[in-house]
Amino acid sequence: MRRTRLEVGCWCGAWVVSFPGVLKLLLPALFPSWRFFDVIGPSPRVEICLLEHPGDDRTGWRALRSRPLRLGVFDRLRAFFWNARWNETLHLANCAERFVQGQTEHCTREIRRRVRSDLRAAGDGAVPAPFFCFRLVFVSRHEGMIRRDVAFVSPPFETFDPLDS
């Protein structure tokens, strides 16, 4: 039995190594750097602009998700067990950071699909505008002042796209 278990373990190890790219993703979890909040770098925001036509001027940018003014005791208690939306907001910020580090294709897709999902939810299933674009804004402190830098502006996307939602 012991030998069988070891064999299964070795087989799993070999499978992991042969899985394209997965070892590169797994290693940081097995040997984590554990550097939480070491440097407070530029902080990402995802902003969106709704468009009637793809060529419209991109004005009227707004935050994709605004945080609540305050949270009551009940809100916090519920969030302890169910905080899906906030965790997704943190995931979007993580995607924005990974985007500027070069993971552009995956992160653009991830943000685009979640923006679509938000827009559909806001319109109760009907889309509020046929097109949208998003931009990534980074907020940082520079020489004592808070500054905002636009790092990326996406091309227009269709708000409803069943093949990419």
Binding site: I40, S43, L69, L71, R141, I146
Partner: peptide, 16 residues
């Protein structure tokens, strides 16, 4: 650093 976390980072859960 902690002032920056509260002032402009994405992490504070509410405006308050």
């Amino acid at each position: 650093a902690l002032v920056d976390v509260f002032e402009f980072s994405v992490y504070p859960a509410s405006e308050a």
